[in-house]
Design a protein around this nucleic acid. Structure first.
Length: 595
RNA sequence: GUCCCGGUAGCUCAGUUGGAUAGAGCAGCAGAUUUCUAAUCUGCAGGUCGGUGGUUCGAGUCCACCCCGGGACGCCA
């Protein structure tokens, strides 16, 4: 019987990697930099818990047989590695299959069983600015804003969880001629802004757009009025500024309300709209001129890129700025003033080329460079369209854009209906709850359904909005994950204990699979955040819910008579609940105790 | 015309840095329940990874060309 291993952290895969690396160096004399063990979770349980794939690549450079290379490394395995593992086997062309001792898994799980759940903490040494939501003042939010908001919030939350400093930046469309046109139109129509709704503003916005068309009879007068309004706004005319603030207020009230319904952290402190950058636009354009990066073309100011036909327009021929100018100023602000190491732009995929140009321009002028630090990174997180059943962008029957508010209302109503229906069964855990309580659970389920469906795929791709599928409670859905939490909560409540501190027994296949998957939480979260890919987190959640349900099926917790086993399994339940709940919370999804 | 993104099971999609027999869900079929919440679990079936060529020990993944679908392309954002 070998001495039991002593782990320093719960990150088993990191520990294995370090030990394997030293074995590789010892056995082969490889330079440390070239000694990557290529460790990953096994493709199948029959190959053990982890596999190391270093041998094939190293054998090539050394001109040796890969299985011999693997054999040499296994023979050089340090005692600490052997203490952790039940077996190290060489298979196939030279894979090293690693099977851990149950005690290693148990020990790592005990270390993970802490408030942080094994998630690494960057201690605020890294800063990210997340461009999210991106609403326009006086316009209704639609499904595109759903994506910009929840994807951005999830990316922000993942980084917060990992200990980054996070700045949410809601890049509002709150400035420029369109806003002035809307404001002028509202004033002509005599709308009382103190009691206007977003619908009123939206109507004025559209009316203003129509009036502004060249063929409209009132075109000249409307445009003159709008320009006059914009001038007053720029000159800080108190009445005009007050009206402008009023329409922002009306818009944002509804935005924040939708954010609350969605479980998204977004408030006035995150608003950093176009108006914020209005006094920096001239200097932005000037900087490009001064750097010799901008040139006049047909009266406009453009930035050209090597090897690219398309230039970036940063100033119109009438001398005014446009969205690229604001984006350049905002990028500079985020890097220089917020201190962002990384700026993630959660914006529609159709703006890919635009952001490529903006990012290249920012890099060319040197605004990504920082003294004594690596360059700041600007990354577009492009998301696809939400489609209707006809595979066309989602519209109402009358051809209007579907508003976010109506979508949320539908999802909420649907979730409530399902939860109420289930509570009818006399033996349902929710039987006897008040209608309000069921409503609250139902809302949480409905919101989870649409959010999870949105975040569980590659966000860059389009998807078809199908509420039936999202809320089906079967398969890879938000409600399925919530259900796993509710099941665990039921057991823990019934037991009146959580097994904390109990010795963990990893005996069955299901306990092992659950334990190993729990241990992957920290590294999975880190990888998901680094890739700015919420779907990786979702995949983890689904796998964990699934693994737990298999465990639940095979391993009775409360029914067993052995008190040690019961305590161990309770502890696994408790840990599973906390990890699931934590992971769901990073997507802003609640986990009700009953459903 | 130029550029970008995508094409994986009947449908919807995963697929990490190039690793073993390409995985899930839905739909289909066969099972498990006096339920620690069956909104569950177990099993079966289902594939020319758009096509061709290339790189190499190994390609869904990298490269070239082609086909199909979607998108963006100077004074909107």
């Amino acid at each position: 019987m070998a001495t039991p291993a002593t782990l320093a952290t719960c990150d088993l895969s990191h520990t294995l990697e370090t030990l394997l690396r030293s074995a590789i160096i010892t056995a082969l004399g490889t330079a440390a930099g070239a000694a990557d063990p290529q460790l990953k979770p096994s493709a199948s349980p029959k190959f053990g818990d982890f596999q190391a794939n270093f041998a094939m690549a190293l054998a090539k450079t050394l001109g040796r047989n890969p299985r011999e290379v693997a054999q040499a490394v296994v023979a050089a395995a340090p005692p600490a590695l052997m203490d952790l593992c039940e077996s190290l086997e060489i298979a196939g062309p030279g894979f090293v299959n690693i099977r851990l001792k149950p005690s290693s898994i148990a020990q790592a799980l005990a270390l993970m069983d802490s408030p942080g759940l094994g998630v690494p903490d960057s201690q605020q040494t890294q800063t990210i600015a997340v461009d999210l939501c991106g609403v326009n003042v006086a316009k209704q939010m639609h499904v595109g804003h759903l994506r910009a908001t929840i994807i951005g919030d999830t990316i922000a939350r993942m980084h917060e969880r990992l200990g980054w400093r996070v700045f949410r930046q809601n890049h509002l469309g709150d400035w420029g001629l369109p806003i002035a046109m809307t404001l002028a139109s509202l004033r002509r129509a005599g709308v009382d802004l103190s009691r206007a709704t977003l619908d009123d503003l939206n109507a004025a916005y559209r009316r203003a757009q129509t009036e502004g068309l060249p063929e409209a009879p009132e075109h000249d007068a409307a445009l003159a009025d709008a320009h006059d309004t914009l001038r007053k706004l720029q000159a800080h005319d108190p009445d005009t500024v007050a009206q402008w603030q009023a329409i922002i207020e009306v818009t944002m009230r509804e935005v924040f309300s939708s954010a609350r319904t969605l479980g998204v952290i977004l408030g006035p402190e995150h608003s950093r709209g176009e108006s914020f950058f209005r006094d920096r636009l001239g200097a932005t354009a000037d900087a490009f001129v001064a750097a010799g990066l901008a040139e006049r073309d047909a009266g406009a100011l453009i930035v050209r890129f090597p090897g690219r036909e398309r230039p970036l327009l940063i100033q119109k021929s009438d001398g005014t700025s446009l969205y690229a100018t604001t984006d350049l100023a905002a990028a500079r602000y985020r890097i220089e003033e917020l201190g962002a190491d990384l700026v993630a732009y959660c914006v529609d995929a159709r703006q890919r080329d635009h952001f490529k140009d903006v990012f290249d321009a920012v890099a060319m002028i040197g605004w990504t460079r920082r003294a004594g630090k690596p360059d700041a990174r600007l990354v577009h997180v492009p998301f696809g369209a939400v489609l209707g059943e006809d595979k066309r962008p989602l519209k109402t029957r009358s051809g209007e854009n579907v508003t976010l508010a109506s979508l949320l209302a539908e999802a909420t109503a649907r979730g409530r209906r399902e939860v109420h229906a289930r509570a009818q069964a006399p033996d349902a855990p929710t039987a006897g709850l008040s209608s309000d309580e069921l409503d609250a659970i139902g809302q949480s389920v409905g919101i989870a359904a649409i959010k999870y469906a949105d975040l569980s795929g590659d966000v860059g791709r389009d998807y078809v909005f199908d509420l039936d599928r999202m809320i089906s409670f079967e398969g890879d859905t938000g409600p399925y994950a919530q259900y796993a939490v509710a099941r665990i909560a039921g057991i823990l409540a019934k037991a009146g204990a959580n097994g904390r501190g109990a010795p963990l027994i990893i005996a069955t296949d299901e306990e092992r699979a659950l334990g190993l998957h729990l241990l992957r939480y920290g590294s999975t979260l880190k990888a998901a955040a680094a890739a700015l890919a919420p779907n990786r987190l979702a995949a983890y959640i689904y796998e964990l819910a699934n693994t737990f349900n298999s465990f639940y099926q095979a391993c009775p917790v409360l029914k067993g008579s052995d008190p040690d086993l019961r305590a161990s399994r309770l502890r696994l339940c408790d840990l599973s609940r906390r990890v699931l709940s934590d992971a769901l919370s990073l997507m802003g999804i609640d986990s009700p105790a009953r459903m």
